[in-house]
Structure formats: structure tokens, C-alpha cells
């Protein structure tokens, strides 16, 4: 097994774990963590798959940097909304669907 494939497989597992977390977990903070795990999986695949013949490829690294910035912004927005929801309802879970 080459190291590129190893990175890709670990990344895929992380992505799947994160995706399951976002879909299944009710607690909002844990859900936000799960989203970040999902993102890390993607970044690992991006960087891992692209390193060919042992040398690193700068383009995916730049993409991952951009991706991290986006993920941080999204996490901040999610946390701000979660705090607001907690202040309004006292709960850290989304209310059940309205009838």
C-alpha cells in the first residue's frame, strides 16, 4: 500500500465518520465538531492523493489553506448561531420539526 493510498483511505474514513456525525448527532456542539472532522478528511485526501513520486504538490496545499479558512468561518457562524439559540431557548439541540 503506497502512502498516497493510505492517506486517501484514512481521509475517506474520517469523512464518513464526520458525515455520520453531522447527520445523526443531536447535540449542536458535537455536530459542529463532526463537521470539522469531515472537513479534515477531505483535506487529507486532497494533500495525500496529490503527492506524487515523493514530492509535495503546492496547488492542493493552497486549496487546503483556502478550505481551512472557509471551514473556520463556517464553524464561527455555526457557533454564533448555537450560542444565540442557547440564549433564546436554553437548549443545545435543534427543536423538533414544526407540525
Amino acid at each position: 500500500m503506497t502512502s498516497a493510498l493510505l492517506f486517501a483511505c484514512v481521509g475517506a474514513i474520517l469523512f464518513a465518520l464526520g458525515l455520520a456525525g453531522v447527520a445523526l448527532i443531536g447535540h449542536l456542539l458535537r455536530r459542529i465538531f463532526a463537521f470539522n472532522v469531515m472537513g479534515s478528511g477531505t483535506f487529507l485526501i486532497l494533500v495525500g492523493l496529490a503527492q506524487r513520486h515523493g514530492s509535495a504538490d503546492p496547488v492542493p496545499q493552497a486549496m487546503v489553506l483556502t478550505g481551512i479558512v472557509v471551514a473556520v468561518a463556517a464553524t464561527a457562524l455555526a457557533l454564533a448561531l448555537t450560542r444565540r439559540l442557547h440564549a433564546l431557548t436554553g437548549k443545545l439541540e435543534l427543536p423538533a420539526d414544526e407540525p
Binding site: F15, L28, T42, L46, V59, A78, L85, L94
Partner: peptide
């Protein structure tokens, strides 16, 4: 209610673009 709707929307849109980005990563690979 709006905050809850926004959070639900946020998770949906993040998962959507996450799947898209994974596709981009595989294409680049």
C-alpha cells in the same frame, strides 16, 4: 425559530459543499 432554521440550513449547505469538495479532491487526485 429563525435561528433553528438557519442552523438546519447551515448544516445542509455545509454537508452539500463538503461532498462537492471531496469530489474536487478526487478529481485533482
Amino acid at each position: 425559530q429563525q435561528i433553528a432554521a438557519a442552523l438546519r440550513y447551515l448544516f445542509a449547505t455545509l454537508v452539500g459543499s463538503g461532498l462537492y469538495l471531496l469530489g474536487v479532491a478526487l478529481l485533482y487526485g
